[in-house]
Computed example of a mutant assay.
Amino acid sequence: MAKEIALVIHNGVQALDVVGPLDVFAEADAMVPIGQGYRCLLVASSLDPVRGSNGMVLMPDLSFAQASRDFHTVLVAGGPTLPEASADEALSAWLRRWGVRAKRHGSVCTGAFVLGHAGLLDGRVVTTHWQNAPRLAAMFPHARVEHDRIHARDGALVTSAGVTAGIDLALALVAEDHGQALALACAKRLVVVAQRQGGQSQFSPLLTPLTDPETPVGRVQAWVIDHLREPMPVRRLAEIAGVSERSIARAFVSELDVTPHEFVEGVRIDQARKLLEASDRALKAVAYDCGFASPEQMRAAFQRRLGTSPGRYRDSFRSSQVA
């Protein structure tokens, strides 16, 4: 019997959050014997047309009242306005009653905020778009928000990172249901990678926020940016700030939620990203210019912070003028 998938949509929904996963499930359905694949249904508060954030009009298959039954999988699609939107009580009630009864329930992109309003994130490991992850963590402090994951699984709860990551999540669910070979075949058909290298941090802006240059932390930040090749023990940073080592360490954690060492490493990675995107310089030269002791140290930092290597990062993001 085909697995019924309910994909919840709403006005302002991100179209790719809907059609990306739907296309994955449709490809999988076409590759398995009839009746063993998927039946996907769009669910909304009513049967009225739903307009996406890009202007596309989507037609729901079922209203909440009509979708009063068990589904195999329930996913809530995201949308640009969801992080600031108030709770939709009708949607929350439907998810609490029927979403949690599915074998799997979860969200694509900012659909995680809808799950949070429904009380379904407490104590769970989740992810969302990198840009909205800090807000999700602040709004739902009992959830464990993983900022860098492309998708996350915690028991029956599944969540994905931003927009096209819904395709990654759907491929993972197909692999779970039908095996990795079928998921790979779907990925090839859709001309996407079956499993991305690295996390979503590699798509985010620079890692290091700057603060008031007149403060001790601000003075250190400005000096670090201008002296990347120099050694930067905490003692030296404290001298630049004009405070004790303990004070500068506390200030960084208090103001930026990072240690001085983490800040310095973040600045070096940021500069390396710029050079890798804009030039074809040797990795050894990039590492030296950014203050890393060796290409191996730079590679380890990239792997730890971005989930990918400098070489792979360059291949993914190098400017066309350089290639």
Rank of each mutant, 00 (worst) to 15 (best):
C109V: 04
G162D: 02
F203R: 11
R144N: 11
A170R: 01
L173G: 01
P33D: 07
R219C: 03
A194K: 00
V322A: 04
G99I: 13
G111W: 11
V43N: 01
P209T: 05
V264S: 06
F263R: 03
S204C: 15
R246A: 15
D270P: 06
R144T: 12
V43D: 04
A112P: 01
V192T: 03
E176N: 09
D270M: 11
F113W: 09
S68R: 15
V57N: 02
D88V: 03
R305D: 09
V19C: 07
L237A: 05
Y38F: 12
A77M: 08
V50P: 05
A181E: 10
C109M: 02
F25W: 00
A152W: 08
S107G: 06
A187L: 08
A65E: 10
A28K: 03
R153L: 13
L256M: 11
R196H: 12
D88C: 04
S201R: 14
Q202D: 08
H151A: 10
N54R: 07
V145T: 10
P213M: 03
L7D: 00
T73L: 10
M59A: 12
R153V: 15
E84I: 00
D270T: 09
A238D: 08
R250S: 11
V163G: 06
P134F: 10
F25H: 05
P83Y: 09
G99D: 13
A238K: 06
G119Q: 10
V57E: 06
A15D: 13
G37L: 08
G37T: 09
E265L: 14
G106N: 01
G199H: 10
I150H: 06
D168L: 08
A241N: 05
V50R: 12
L95C: 11
E230H: 12
P295D: 03
P21Y: 02
V174E: 00
F292Y: 07
V286D: 00
S46V: 08
A6D: 11
K274D: 10
S68V: 13
I167F: 03
G166Q: 05
Q271F: 14
F71A: 09
P233Y: 09
R299C: 03
G79F: 15
E27H: 12
R96K: 12
G307A: 13
L91M: 15
Y38N: 03
L237C: 11
A241E: 04
E239P: 00
I225G: 02
V19A: 02
D226R: 14
A282H: 15
G218T: 07
A272V: 08
I167E: 00
H72C: 05
A138Q: 14
V243L: 13
L95S: 05
G111M: 08
L182Q: 00
A181L: 07
P310S: 12
S244M: 09
V174S: 03
V322K: 06
